[in-house]
């Protein structure tokens, strides 16, 4: 009899795991709480480092699902263990599975928690996700008034490496995302001045450093310093204060748009499911795997696996790799 695997989360991690398990002959049920597949990537315009359209990746994954039963608009409310199997309750229905994969991903750091930056208060303070939506809809950023911006500031590490908001960890991908977006702004509006305020630039992946050099060659200015506060000034522009730590001097400037590079936060819903399944969370609030180095997909509960950004910040490549590894571990478990 074909064994069934329940995958919770229809983002990149869930889709890739489903694809792999499907090809291994398992019956796969994919639960996604929103009405569309692709997670955060589906809301992104283009991807680093090669500016490929995000929709291509999402399409590629969704079109290769084979017999996966995808249940969109379906919120998993609880997962219980019963006679060696799992009962997944979702939208008032129960589903049975032999193994469960949590691929619930992350949520964007709520930028309004950094009250001093003014997100939700000042109309020209936006997040990196908002900027991607502008690129999708209009191909370029615009001020809330509709005017073309002539100066934009990107603020790195918003909700990352920040103990004040209980996010002491690095979200890994925001630096390169800022560099990518800064280049895109310069390409869309060549006369626009673009500034990146950073702590460190963590260009860890292939092609990332090249992207950084490209940004510099296109005139993006990098200032090592963290924003202290922003204020709205006349015309809806934004005054920002920071310290240029390389020049050892405080800095104040006015810009048309401030883009907050929001980090990855643990999904609040995931912690409830984790509690149902007896899983522990790591110090940052993501799900802890059995062994960080040698067994990153298995959990302390037999038959429950984790993959993707629900274990911590990840880029797409690493997420896809993790998903393939998870599928193999699930297969090994169900083949015993």
């Amino acid at each position: 009899m074909t064994k069934t695997v329940a995958i919770i989360g229809g983002g990149v991690a869930g889709l890739e795991t489903a694809k792999q398990l499907n090809s291994l002959g398992y019956s796969v049920k994919l639960f996604e709480k929103s009405n569309t597949l692709g997670g955060h990537v589906a809301k992104w315009d283009r991807l680093f480092p090669n500016k490929r359209h995000a929709s291509e990746v999402v399409s590629s994954l969704t079109l290769s699902q084979g017999n996966t039963q995808t249940l969109v608009g379906t919120t998993v409310s609880s997962i219980k263990r019963q006679h060696g199997n799992f009962i997944i309750s979702a939208n008032s229905n129960n589903h049975e599975a032999d193994a469960v994969v949590l691929a619930t991903g992350f949520e964007l750091f709520p930028a309004e928690k950094k009250e001093e930056y003014g997100y939700g208060l000042f109309e020209n303070v936006i997040t990196s996700a908002d900027l991607e939506q502008m690129f999708i809809k209009h191909g370029k950023p615009a001020m809330a008034s509709g005017h073309k911006p002539v100066r934009i500031a990107f603020i790195h590490c918003v909700g990352s490496r920040d103990e004040k908001v209980n996010r002491p960890y690095c979200s890994k991908v925001c630096c390169v995302t800022a560099v990518k977006q800064a280049i895109e702004v310069k390409e869309a509006i060549p006369n626009c001045e673009v500034f990146c305020f950073y702590m460190d630039l963590r260009m860890f992946g292939p092609g990332y450093e090249d992207l950084y050099k490209e940004a510099q060659s296109k005139g993006v200015t990098f200032i090592r310093g963290r924003l202290s506060e922003s204020s709205e000034i006349e015309g809806g522009r934004v005054q920002i204060k920071a310290e240029d730590t390389l020049a050892s001097t405080p800095l104040k400037m006015s810009v048309d748009i401030v883009v907050l590079m929001v980090g990855m936060s643990p999904q609040l819903d995931t912690s409830k499911l984790a509690a149902d399944l007896g899983l522990s969370l790591n110090a940052d609030g993501f799900i802890a795997a059995t062994d960080l180095h040698t067994n990153p997909t298995e959990t302390t509960t037999k038959g429950v696996f984790v993959t993707g950004a629900c274990t911590g910040p990840n880029n797409i490549t690493d997420t896809v790799n993790a998903a393939k590894a998870t599928a193999l571990d699930v297969h090994n478990y169900l083949s015993r």
Binding site: E112, E115, G120, L121, F122, E123, E232
Partner: peptide, 10 residues
């Protein structure tokens, strides 16, 4: 200034 944002903080 979005007043609803301020009210949320308040």
């Amino acid at each position: 200034m979005k007043l609803e944002g301020k009210r949320k903080i308040w």
